[in-house]
């Protein structure tokens, strides 16, 4: 990772960070919903039906991205109701409480924690259980992530990382960086001036461009 570039980090809990690329992509994930009343001229915009004038009838199922669901959510007038994605539902919550380590969160997520926290914005009666499951899942998976990130030195980590959620990946990378820096220091290389990683990446790119 480049030393001088610090991207805007994702927000915590219920808050999204406005300028964070991670949060923008996270809020692009879709969740199932239902139209509670007839919505005129909206069919085309949501990708259902061909004509611009078509309306969405009451009770039809929709797939809407999180940002839209948040923007349209109104506790007083329920026009669109939001349902839980299946990974946050009761059945999956049981799986997580049985053994959270076996779940491939990247396939199911990849923003399991962030998206789950955002779901708490909608006044769902199951909110406390969702929050509890997310927290417990993180706790039970964290030990393993920390362990592997601190001990896999000079190894191919792609298999370890493949099943991790985006938040967990960031943690894993931070652990790996710490490990590498420490090993560097032990070997007495910490004072060596190295080429900037950004420069190294551009160098690689240049060579591949020449080949192509």
């Amino acid at each position: 990772m480049s030393e001088a570039y610090f991207p805007v980090g994702p927000g915590l809990g219920l808050e999204e960070n406005f300028l964070s690329l991670d949060d923008i992509l996270m809020s692009q994930e879709k969740l199932p919903g239902r139209a509670e009343s007839t919505l005129p001229r909206l069919a085309f915009a949501l990708g259902q039906g061909a004509g611009t004038g078509d309306s969405i009838p009451e009770g039809s199922k929709l797939e809407i991205p999180l940002w839209l669901a948040k923007g349209l959510h109104d506790s007083k007038r329920r026009i669109i109701s939001v349902e839980l994605p299946k990974i946050y539902k009761e059945a999956w919550r049981t799986v997580f409480s049985a053994d959270a380590n076996v779940v491939d969160l990247h396939k199911m997520g990849p923003y399991y924690y962030g998206f789950g926290s955002q779901l708490l914005n909608f006044d769902n009666p199951e909110n406390p259980e969702i929050a509890q499951t997310i927290l417990q899942t993180f706790i039970s998976r964290f030990r393993r992530i920390m362990d592997s990130s601190q001990n896999a030195y000079n190894e191919d980590t792609s298999a370890l990382v493949a099943r991790l959620d985006e938040l967990e990946r960031a943690l894993f990378q931070a652990g790996q960086k710490g490990l590498n820096d420490f090993q560097c220091w032990e070997k007495g290389q910490a004072s060596q001036i190295t080429a900037s990683s950004l420069v190294q990446n551009y160098g690689k790119r240049k060579f591949t461009d020449m080949d192509g």
Binding site: A4, Y5, L19, G71, L198
Partner: peptide, 28 residues
């Protein structure tokens, strides 16, 4: 909502690019 969303995406895009360009000054 769509307007606000587009605005957010574009601002974040431009801002993150500036962060990257600023990093270039220090690296190069």
């Amino acid at each position: 909502c769509c307007l606000l969303r587009n605005q957010r995406c574009i601002l974040a895009y431009l801002y993150d690019r500036l962060l990257r360009i600023r990093a270039l000054r220090w690296e190069y």
